[in-house]
Design a protein around this nucleic acid. Structure first.
Lengths: 348, 348
DNA sequence: CAAAAATTTATATACGTATACACTTAATTT
DNA sequence: AAATTAAGTGTATACGTATATAAATTTTTG
């Protein structure tokens, strides 16, 4: 019994050596069968395959990774995995990765900056071939450093970072302008704006679109109508309650985020206000509820699956070095879908 | 220049040896610092830490895995990652894994049986410490074999398999009976049932609950009222259209699945039927829409996050061998949440 | 102050795989 | 038939880490 014969000694899983022994060939032949090397006789192939079958052999990915310095794995770090919008991103990315024979592994940070750092760390230790990152902390200096120092390619998902880096983003600014413009064209002058963190693209750009559109319509800005700060449903709920129960409530409301929209709709329901009679309403990123709501809700939509796909494609190209070295920033469109939640402002 | 001095030659990433050289200590000391070994002088520690910092060193997880035969990784295989119910499962599981210092990596099969096998394979090759599996193919013999032969512990998520295996499941049967019972108590006799695949727990058990409750109420079964077969929204839509436009349409409808419910509601809307005046309705697993719908929808709910947590906890216990060897099957409750989508059957 | 004990550091090796290289045998050419 | 080529297989080794064992150093003790 030789030194390396772990398996027959009952310790641990079968290795290439065990398979080789069982098949009566050398370990090299086993390796060649595994990797579909051309020069191996058909007879040997089946010999090896049978042995693998018999022993229940699985190649050890860690050993392979160490030897080849590749893992064929793409790591994805998402803020909130329970958000179905992110689910669609993951679905899109996974489809592309599958087709490229890469395993996509998804993790989520829960918007926790420490967790985010840990996950980038994890991915690097595991030597993933590349990372798709949706940070929840665009502004963190620490994170910028981590990203800059990262030893594997990163594609950033719908975030603005203050340095050059591959990214795929969605258009938020013009869509927000279009949404607000629609409300203005219906006669609304007091338009409430509920937004996510200003340190995050969807929050920042949508608020900017709101401001610019009002300005270009010569409507004086009332800062108290802008309620930015969190992407959470609770934020949408409380700020909507606050806005609608104020002395001079808005006649229209724009909720720039799927959870925010849910929260806002709950608040509107709780206050027993009717859309669009008491209040015109525009939401964002929430396809299902918007279509089914009574009345159906006008909303800004974007193709999250496409976002995931584009990010994965860009990352794979970067990994394969099949594109030039210069940084790529892809911008995907948003679309305003008109439904019946917006009405002409009633005079008086 | 020695043989192993890769990094200073510019090839690849820094290793323990590079760090050791830079710090002026032996590789062993570096390893000890990494693993918080007690017996290492404070001065050496900082020396090593500075060197790691300077070189941008990251331990190679593959090498560690090979040496220690552990990966501190939990693999999760889910059917559909874009389904927010599954997102909540993942969230729950991830929380538990984080607290146990395990990295949870999520993948999804898209209900593709081949993909599912591949993923189990991937996980084994990568030597994850354990797998949480939500199969979309309870009935597949091939899959049963893969699961039985799997070399790492598996916890099955809300599925019935024809052999002993750790699992965490949700109660569907009694909740379905309760839902149908509620409709019966309101006078309904013709109750439509839209269900997912019969080869999957939520589909099978809910239909069984439906049948048994009707039987115990001495209501003759009309098989044409049962529309099982797919969890997809489209199935819910088409079967609802079909049911409601038949000669003898049901007066109440039970949609046993979140996507099915969405599809059914779309169909009801398309046919311009009013809930609950024209049709009483009960849904399942779709908290957001149900609460916001007009009228709010009575629904069967379950705690998906808890499902994920319990599965992860069971798996970790199994990995740590902190529980006895016997197979565990945890059953979590479902709950019927009463809202205003069900009404007394109008006579005549 | 020598010796024993405790602490810290170093040497050597194994984990499982892929590949460069050498080797054997069979097939082809001269 | 000898020489060349091709096809198939085997030997030896490196990847980066953790640890057993040994060695060196410092601290404690009689």
């Amino acid at each position: 019994m030789t030194k390396k014969d772990n398996h027959s000694r009952g310790l641990g899983r079968p290795t290439m050596n065990d398979v080789a022994k069982t098949a009566g060939v050398s370990p090299v032949s086993v390796s060649r069968v595994i990797n579909n090397h051309p020069s191996v006789k058909e007879g040997t192939k089946t010999l090896v395959r049978n042995a693998m079958q018999k022993l229940g052999y699985f190649p050890n990915a860690a050993a392979q990774a160490m030897r080849t310095n590749k893992t064929d794995t793409i790591g994805v770090i998402i803020t909130d995995i329970a958000n179905s919008a992110n689910g669609h991103i993951l679905q899109g990315a996974e489809e592309v990765c599958n087709n490229a024979d890469k395993l996509m592994i998804a993790t989520s940070s829960g918007f926790d900056i420490n967790r985010e750092s840990q996950l980038i760390d994890h991915m690097q230790r595991r030597r993933v071939d590349g990372i798709i990152l949706q940070t929840g902390h665009e502004e963190s200096e620490e994170l910028h450093q981590m990203i800059k120092n990262c030893t594997v390619p990163i594609v950033v998902l719908d975030r603005d970072l203050p340095f050059e880096i591959d990214s795929v983003k969605c258009e938020h600014y013009h869509a927000a302008r279009e949404a607000v413009g629609l409300l203005i064209s219906l006669g609304h002058r007091r338009i409430g704006m509920i937004a996510a963190e200003m340190t995050t693209r969807p929050g920042h750009d949508r608020v900017k679109g709101y401001r610019d559109e009002l300005e270009s319509a010569n409507i004086p800005l009332d800062e108290t109508l802008i309620r930015a700060g969190s992407h959470l449903s609770e934020h949408g709920y409380h700020e909507t309650i606050s806005l609608l129960s104020s002395d001079n409530p808005p006649t229209a409301l724009f909720a720039g985020g799927n959870h925010l929209q849910i929260g806002a709709l709950k608040a509107i329901k709780a206050l027993n206000k009717k859309i669009p009679d008491d209040l015109s309403f525009i939401g964002a990123d929430e396809a299902t509820v918007s279509a089914l709501y009574t009345p159906p809700i006008t909303t800004i939509n974007r193709d999250m699956r496409l976002l995931g796909k584009k990010a994965a494609e860009l990352l794979l190209s970067r990994i394969n070095k099949s594109i030039s070295d210069e940084v790529r920033n892809t911008l995907l469109p948003s679309e305003v879908i008109l439904r019946s939640s917006c009405a002409l402002l009633k005079k008086g």
